[in-house]
Amino acid sequence: MENLEFILRYVLCFLAIAVIFNCVLSLIRLRPEKKTYALLVDVTNDEQFPITCYETSIGRSKSCDIVFSNMTVSRSHAVIALRKDGFYVFDTDSKTGIHVNGEKIEKPKKIFNGDVIAFGTAVLNFYIGSEADDDMSHKKDAPIARATLTNLADDNVFRLEGDFVTIGRRKGSNIEISAPYVSREHAELTLQKNRWIIENFSSVTATTLNGEVIYSPTALENGDIIEIGDFAFRYNENR
């Protein structure tokens, strides 16, 4: 027993060190993954301001995350925060206020993809990136059993199969639309993490989703209406 205890002392120490050393090293070295949740784009010069944190302060002060030297922007003007159900913009006692899509906000306002936000005279477009969805969906989506696009003009049903579906004028596209204003490769639907994502490739004609122009890859939901020129499709899915 004496010899066993003698050895167990070392074993005990070794085991504890193995756990603590590994965990401490991991805690000290791990850095959270940097994600770009959304993008603010200055309409005047196309300058991009990525939003990488859950809360982003905007103002003239150097301590803000996004700094404008514009004199109409207060020192600490606003905060854009990612909350449970989406992005909100908060006015933090600015002098010139915040306008979302031209309307001055009185209380924190939820903002959507494509919204135009003005801080004083600084006007920016707001785009939500796909990585925001990653963090916002804790329930993994169930696999899609059946997804379809229905041409609203003729009720023609096209079933989405495989990993991607192309839409365009080019012969051989999965969904071929032979109209001159439709680009050869106009848009693409891809299946990512059990969601169909639509992305626009055309620089000629806009692709809209529920009436809003798509600038970045956007996930589709049941009942969404996709429009390309005069053509309109309804997206349906069964899980």
Binding site: C53, Y54, T56, S57, S63, C64, D65
Partner: peptide, 8 residues
């Protein structure tokens, strides 16, 4: 969050 992380 820059200000908070700097203070941290």
């Amino acid at each position: 969050m820059k200000s908070i992380s700097r203070r941290a």
